[in-house]
Design a protein around this nucleic acid. Structure first.
Length: 643
RNA sequence: GCCUGCAUAGCUCAGUAGGUAGAGCAACUGACUUGUAAUCAGUAGGUCGUUGGUUCGAUUCCGACUGCAGGCUCCA
């Protein structure tokens, strides 16, 4: 018998007997063996120590690759579980996967883990790594495994295994005294994990993600190929946290939130300047793209929400109030109101597609634990719009919308967009045939645009499937911003109709769509994306005119007036302070341009320009600066480092 | 809503093994007229989130509440 092993470079190695990944790695280079964490055999991940007995394509997985890191992180979870079992034997283990940048493990235990426990666990993990326990794979019968785990009091593990088919064999991994159900692969021994890991946080998590189940204790950690990588990651996170919109919102005096209005934002002058800049931009864009802007009431009788179906599904999350013996809801969304506008007067097929847009002020009683800065609030404004169209027009409208969204995101400097298609949920309204067509229309539009999208089965809205467009915040959390949703149900429920070509009355299809989503959330992400240093067209203060001597005050005010005349947001700083003091302060405020004005500038009609992010100055005539800066605003240029 | 943690001056934070608190910056006053990331001196500023309890005495210990943070769940 001879086994042919094909390596990634096409080379073929022959072995007389079964060979392990570790042996193959060793035979290629000792460095490769040192960095090996697992092996890919015919596309499947295997343990390095598992004998390969047939001809196979084999690739060694090393610790510095994404795939290798995933193996390391998964092992870190197991080592953590072993440490927890050693320190707190009464604890039950449940599941512990690798995740982006790290891993977690969910434990069941009556006493809560404390931050001090975390240190102890991490210390024990290091010991386990030092012990370098061999990790071995064993194949068990399902029933044998259930019996074993129940026998040692690990009922969660037994429950997981009990869901496998009765005749299925399962794999368990043994390291020291610790035995865990696992598909693998795992490292040959705990020492291979090395020291690039750290436990980071403690959290509650429901068993199987269901709030009706017991709440487990989840310990998160991060793991990297070595300590250097770990430190680099921790430094990156530290840097990223400086971009947090809540910190910048305070430091740059943009907004605040206070106890009396949880989940609602108090916008300060500078924050509101950004807000209006964004909203005005969107209004102009929507007009350009064939939308008509409307405004609908915030307080609407509850009966409308009962007819639309929102009251029964979201009643608990709606703010309601009574007055003059009528019950009202503070609108949580705009669509039923937009249908009311559509319903005024008789509509013809010639009116379609009809695109109604609104900066709709919405309130939702979000759970207290869900609130997050200005990203997740109870009071927000959507750049909402509803497109009333025929079924034939869905495809092209969705395509137009995606192009529109891309144009907007590009202007704001967003390159990385996450696309998701969410399909029919269990609790829904409408016919399955309609859902079929709606889902296909969205999928088709995504594919026509050549986008790389992810399917989220069952995550659609109750009235229709949706495409979500998400962006990441400073530490990589994903937030949904844009969306487009196909709705075959609500127009009918709310009696919308139009006269078709043949004179018959038809129910239009409604597309719900938003590009920014919640303006509040979008601004939070925008602030983080730019670390507070917004490009000139969005900066709340675009130019600061700072005097060097009081003799230049008059000229500085003339400069400010000239900037105002050119439509530039400019402030003037006449304080009796040194110019370096003013430069420092306005630089910390991340103002795009500081114009320093001294005796010379006053005499020559020039300005000394210092752009944010640069230590250079250039002295130019005032008119030239205004022209160039206006052009920069006009073209929505991204952040520019000055000459 | 659930789990864990946190709440001290306008901001960032220190502190009290239980005896009603301190720094830097900001603010205010004065001096300095200044050329590109902090001029100097002085003054003022806090019911230590709210509320019960233990105690001779609570900002500190315990409980409740509110809010915030990180997760979980939810997200029309």
């Amino acid at each position: 018998m001879s086994i042919a092993i094909t390596l990634p470079d096409g080379a073929i190695k022959r072995y007389e007997t079964a060979v392990t990944g570790l042996e193959i790695a060793e035979s290629i280079a000792s460095g490769l063996r040192r960095n090996a964490v697992a092996v890919r055999v015919n596309g499947e991940q295997w343990d390095l120590s598992r004998p390969i007995e047939i001809d196979a394509e084999v690739a060694i997985i090393t610790r510095d690759t994404e795939e290798g890191l995933e193996v390391l992180r998964h092992d870190a979870a197991h080592v953590m579980a072993e440490a927890v079992k050693e320190l707190y034997p009464e604890t039950q283990v449940t599941i512990g996967p690798a995740i982006e940048n790290g891993f977690y493990y969910d434990f069941a235990r009556d006493d809560a883990f404390t931050p001090e426990d975390l240190e102890a666990i991490e210390g024990r993990m290091k010991e386990i790594v030092k012990r370098n326990e061999e990790i071995t794979r064993e194949v068990w019968q399902r029933d044998q495994a259930i019996e074993y785990f129940n026998g040692i009091g690990e009922v969660y593990k037994a429950e997981i295994i009990a869901e496998f088919p009765a005749d299925e064999t399962i794999t368990v991994y043994r390291q020291g005294e610790f035995l865990d159900l696992c598909r693998g692969p795992h490292l040959p021994s705990t020492g291979v994990l090395r020291d690039g890991f750290k436990l980071t946080k403690l959290a509650g998590a429901y068993w199987r993600g269901d709030p009706n189940n017991a709440q487990l204790q989840r310990i998160y950690g991060t793991a990297w190929s070595d300590k250097k990588q770990l430190k680099a990651y921790l430094r990156r996170m530290e840097e990223a946290e400086k971009r947090d919109h809540r910190k910048l919102g305070k430091a740059l005096d943009l907004f605040h939130i206070q106890d009396e209005a949880p989940g609602s934002v108090f916008w300060h002058p500078k924050g509101w300047a950004i807000y209006t800049a964004v909203q005005n931009y969107m209004a102009a864009q929507q007009y350009k793209h064939g939308y008509q802007e409307i405004k609908t009431p915030v307080l609407v009788d509850i009966s409308l929400w009962e007819r639309s179906g929102h009251a029964s599904k979201f009643g608990d999350d709606m703010f309601t109030l009574s007055s003059d013996e009528r019950d009202y809801a503070v609108k949580p969304m705009n669509c039923p109101c937009h249908v009311q506008v559509f319903n005024q007067g008789l509509k013809s097929y010639r009116d379609l597609p009809l695109r109604l847009a609104e900066f709709g002020s919405c309130h939702r009683n979000e759970m207290s634990g869900a609130l997050h800065g200005i990203m997740r609030v109870r009071s927000f404004v959507q750049d909402d719009a509803h497109i009333f169209c025929t079924e034939d027009q869905i495809q092209s409208e969705v395509k137009l919308f995606i192009d529109f969204l891309h144009e907007v995101y590009r202007d704001f400097g967003f390159e990385e967009i996450i696309y998701k298609l969410s399909t029919r949920p269990e609790q829904r309204v409408g016919e399955d045939a309609d859902w079929d067509r709606a889902e296909q229309a969205l999928e088709q539009a995504l594919n026509d645009n050549g986008l790389d999208w992810e399917l989220q089965p069952g995550e659609g809205a109750f009235y229709g499937p949706k495409v979500e467009f998400s962006l990441k915040d400073c530490i990589g959390r994903v937030w949904q911003c844009g969306t487009i949703q196909v709705d075959f149900s609500m127009p009918g429920r709310l009696d919308a109709e139009y006269v078709a070509e043949d004179g018959s009355k038809q129910v239009p299809v409604m597309l719900h769509r938003a590009i920014l989503g919640s303006i509040e959330r979008f601004l939070g992400i925008l602030i983080e994306q730019h670390a507070g240093a917004l490009p000139a067209w969005l900066a709340p203060q675009q130019v600061m005119v700072a005097t060097i001597v009081t003799d230049a005050n008059d000229y500085a005010e003339q400069v400010q007036a000239a900037l105002h005349n050119a439509g530039i947001r400019a402030e003037v700083d006449l304080r009796n302070e040194k110019i370096s003091y003013k430069v420092r302060e306005h630089s910390l405020q991340k103002i795009p341009a500081i114009l320093c004005i001294g005796q010379r500038e006053a005499e020559q009609g020039t300005v000394a320009v210092r752009r944010f992010g640069s230590k250079q100055q250039s002295v130019v005539p005032l008119e030239q600066f205004i022209d160039e800066f206006s052009e920069e605003i006009e073209s929505k240029q991204q952040f520019v480092v000055g000459e």
